[in-house]
Design a protein around this nucleic acid. Sequence first.
RNA 1: GGAGUGAUGGCCGAGUAGGUCGAAGGCGCUCGCCUGCUAAGCGAGUAUACGCCCAAAAGCGUAUCGACGGUUCGAAUCCGUCUCACUCCGCCA
Length: 426
Amino acid sequence: MMLDIRAIRANPDEFRIGMTRRRMDPTIIDKVLALDEEWRKDLAEVERLKAVRNKASEDIARKKKAKEDATSEIEEMKKVSDEIKALDESVRSADEALKALLLELPNKPHDSVPDGLSEDDNVDMRHVGEVPHFSFDPLPHWDLAEALGILDIERAVKITGSRFVLYKGLGARLERALASFMLDVQTEHGYTEIFPAFIANDASLVGTGNLPKFGDEMFKLEGLPYYLIPTAEIPLTNYYRDEILSADMLPVKFAGYSSSFRSEAGSAGKDTRGLIRLHQFQKVELVKLVAPETSYQELESLVDDATRILDILELPYRVIEICTGDLGSKETKKYDVEVWLPNQKRYREISSCSNFEDYQARRANLRFRRDETSRPEFVHTLNGSGLAVGRTIAAILENGQQQDGSVRLPKALVPYMGGVEVIPAP
RNA sequence: GGAGUGAUGGCCGAGUAGGUCGAAGGCGCUCGCCUGCUAAGCGAGUAUACGCCCAAAAGCGUAUCGACGGUUCGAAUCCGUCUCACUCCGCCA
């Protein structure tokens, strides 16, 4: 389950409005309600029959024990059992259809999310840092990187294929340094560092909402129910899947470093050069499991944790709020953090911070108990990148480039680079 | 990869010639009693999901003994498939 079927039953209009705000067809809600009704009708009947059968079974057992004859009851129960079998089947298929439909429904946007049709309607929240001015035409990061000998795209394509890269020398070191630096900052923010497996099973992907709907965005292992993770969100959010946490464990904060694998189906022709859109990239992902009443305030602090990296690296960025028309299907509210790329003369997404409320928690059966005696409740889950390493490298190169082709590194990175302050011009 | 053993409630652990078992017992936990304090002791309680009812609570019902399927009037108990864990062998970083 993903949306609460009881909430839909109680307030179908709210959900119809949610669909409409997302520019999707609200009549799907009526399909859900019809299926739900059918399922409950059959369920009530089959449960009634089972109650009859259970009673009769007790009688039969008692008679047998007393060495009495029970053949007439047994005969009668044969008929009831056949009915149960048939009804069970229709309950099962109605339930399956309902679950399948619910799994495909998107989450309901939060009331505070601005209405809009597309990304053009996203709302600028704030700009931080000075956009640098160059006395020369700033180069794109891929030209810089290849000239500096720290990125070898041609050979990466030979070894694997397009949309893969290979870092070399100080480039490889920069990748490593950034991962280390980001993890250090985020653990200081109270996140527990996690290094997960890069392959997850289908149940985990259903838990986070990547399946069943978005299977074609991932790489699947042939013949196995395993996928290369498209983000460390998968292992981090599923860490406590099917568990009940105690309230004092909340908020759970994980920072996971991993490669992320994306098939990029449907993005042919977009960002074909450089480090912006790859089949594999590394990032530090932040995941929080929180008490429901705190999730929107946790979302704000999540954005702060992500942008802190850019503050320290002195890279200019902006934060935008995503409108209903551009909101991903799992999210109730989302902010994107975008870093300035001088060559493209525009901001590009480097982190995306979202609240899912209980959407993933329902799917992953991820609950907590307020105190010993209270019933389990679903947690709220959030995540955001903190940050994507490849895009950070692109930003460092483009913003730090100097006339002679060398690149000045952010001061905070120097200790992680073994004292290197500048990647020297070739 | 080969051979074997196993999977029961928060934990440990009974229960296999099928019958009133959601499941003995212990531990833990909660509440109460008792006790200068603590410890011990005594009593009661202690799963989850869904449906019905409903303002809510209570109540009623169904399901759940790794998962799925089968046999049967009836399965924790029998049969099949799968998953996972452990042990030994092989292989390997």
